[in-house]
Design a protein around this nucleic acid. Structure first.
Lengths: 335, 335
DNA sequence: TTGTAAGCGTTATCAG
DNA sequence: CTGATAACGCTTACAA
């Protein structure tokens, strides 16, 4: 194929008049080299355009510096925001991100993890889907660290980062009641991921505790169109809800647009709406959506610190529950 | 650090009762192995949880299978859509994507390219910023292939994919005139990237050809807020424009929201707006924005095919200009 | 501090 | 088709 000709440490060594181990040491932080030779090496390297071969280095050190990010729907606002944060912090920590896309098909995550293993990734961060137990075991057995974000589940070993979805859902009920709403509804997708379901169940439970029933509708995947369709279903009911909690902001945006433009409802006067994620669009003037902020920078920080530092202290894995702050905007009365 | 213990080809060979070269061949498509031994090897490999070490393979084959994607603002709708397409097609072609974030600082792209070189990436696709000539040369000299997307420029060697921005801008002028607009304006950011400037210049030139002057405002970075601010500036002028072409959809969304909610203008009756990129939000009911579609799947296809197949036929690099389709929605009268 | 030499897990070459 | 053997470019004891 290609005529790839990279300059090797050997050549740098010759040019600098030192041994190749000297070159290696010059490029290893904290290695014992005299400043003089280090400079000599660096100059020769610069001149020749030498760059340490991380493939070979990874082979020797048994540490590739690669962290794989396993994710579906990268193009979605919340996902891409999390991705941005993770890649940035990973880079800052001296790691490099390998992006692996999954689709919704079975075994898609497993395939992704296999790829991560082939490149001897130091760790894998899973943002979508769930790995098969056996492959997860393989990763752990091989010394790969695993981080699961927002996919609560009982796999042992990995770091699991989750939000207090149920509790957050309870806060929405309170807010809706305070706004004087009485007919509560929950708009969900059919994705059925743990965090989505936790929001739904938390909402229904908290409402029930107040003696209220909740209309629940689920449709399609977690996007704008699904929100519109759920809105059509809910708003054509006899007992039209006056407060809707949408499982994600994307659903909420679709819901709001349908409510306003197809049903001519004004928000929040006739209908209160809350969402989840605090995507950028939630703050746009057209939506001004009251929602929960995904603590993406905290999530990323926790994940990255755990990866690069000590995961020793928690031999059986570590579960982290982060708090989602409620961001008050105009789509719920009161506040 | 970690106790990474991956199983090696050696162990598989022992278990299968063959030599390690047999194992290697079993995992190399098209290598000469008898079906019998291949099966034996595969079974042993499966049982042991063996996965080819792509670090070592890359070292030997002089081809890592890694393609680096160099990008800033991953969390932006258009960028993340392109990213999704690229990673998917790269995966389908048997490559793996390494995501490298850049910020706006000088030399940020160079740093990213250096990282790509260290991992001996087969190629780098640059979505943001521009590399220094010297480092670009180094890449080419080393046999790394370079793809520049939407950053027209005269670097030799790499594949450059661009849109017909100027021509597209001309089509907007036509559309605005047909809608009966007479006071044209262009809303831009201060980013000053080649494609943004091409849209601006193309628009101004086409308008001038019709004997019309164009109000041009530039502000901040290419985002929603910038669109709002530019709108405030333009719509408080004596001679308020009646048709605005925004350099990107994000700017257009901000512009529209400001026009409607702060200036109570109705679109398209009092003000026609067009954007560029066709991000998902452009199709949302609140915006219904007439815009140009970035041909992301074509861009990705062209880039990936060029990478995995022949770049031989174009020794001096290859420049590709793709057509941006106009997507008619409701923000421009007529259509 | 420096150099020598022995790996790391592959693949490619070359006999058999 | 198969098995030894020599690279690939690097790191890291071990001596000097």
């Amino acid at each position: 194929m290609s005529e790839k000709v990279f300059v090797s440490a050997e050549e740098v060594a010759r040019k600098a008049g030192v041994s190749r181990s000297a070159v290696s040491r010059a490029f290893t932080p904290g290695a014992s080299v005299s400043e003089k030779t280090r400079i000599k090496v660096m100059e020769a390297a610069e001149e020749l355009g030498y760059h340490v071969n991380h493939l070979a280095r990874g082979l020797m050190r048994n540490e590739s510096g690669i962290v794989s990010l396993i994710v579906s729907d990268v193009a979605t606002p919340y996902r891409s925001a999390l991705l941005r944060e993770l890649t940035q912090q990973l880079q800052a920590a001296g790691k490099v991100a390998m992006l692996i896309n999954t689709d919704r098909s079975d075994g898609s995550v497993d395939l992704a993890l296999r790829q991560a293993i082939r490149y001897r990734a130091d760790a894998s961060i899973i943002l979508s889907g769930l790995p098969d137990k056996s492959i997860a075991q393989l990763c752990l057995r091989s010394g790969q660290r695993l981080v699961l974000i927002n996919r609560d589940d009982d796999q042992p070993g990995p770091l699991r980062i989750n939000l207090d979805d149920r509790e957050a859902a309870g806060r929405v009920v309170t807010a809706f009641l305070r706004a004087g709403c009485t007919r509560l509804a929950f708009a969900n997708s059919q994705a059925g991921t743990p965090s989505l379901m936790a929001r739904e169940q938390g909402f229904v439970a908290a409402a029930k505790a107040q003696g209220l029933d909740v209309i629940v509708e689920r449709h399609g995947s977690t996007g704008y169109e699904a929100g519109q369709i759920v809105a059509q279903r809910m708003l054509t009911r006899k007992e039209r809800p006056d407060a809707v909690f949408c499982a994600t902001d994307l659903l909420a945006c679709g819901f709001m647009d349908a409510a306003r433009h197809q049903f001519s409802l004004s928000i929040p006067e006739q209908l209160c709406i809350a969402g989840f994620d605090d995507i950028e669009q939630a703050s746009w003037t057209s939506y001004h959506l009251t929602t929960f902020a995904q603590p993406v920078v905290t999530i990323a920080r926790e994940a990255v610190t755990w990866l690069v530092e000590g995961w020793e202290d928690a031999p059986d894995g570590h579960a982290l529950t982060l708090h989602a702050d409620l961001v008050w905007r105009g789509s719920v009365r009161g506040g």
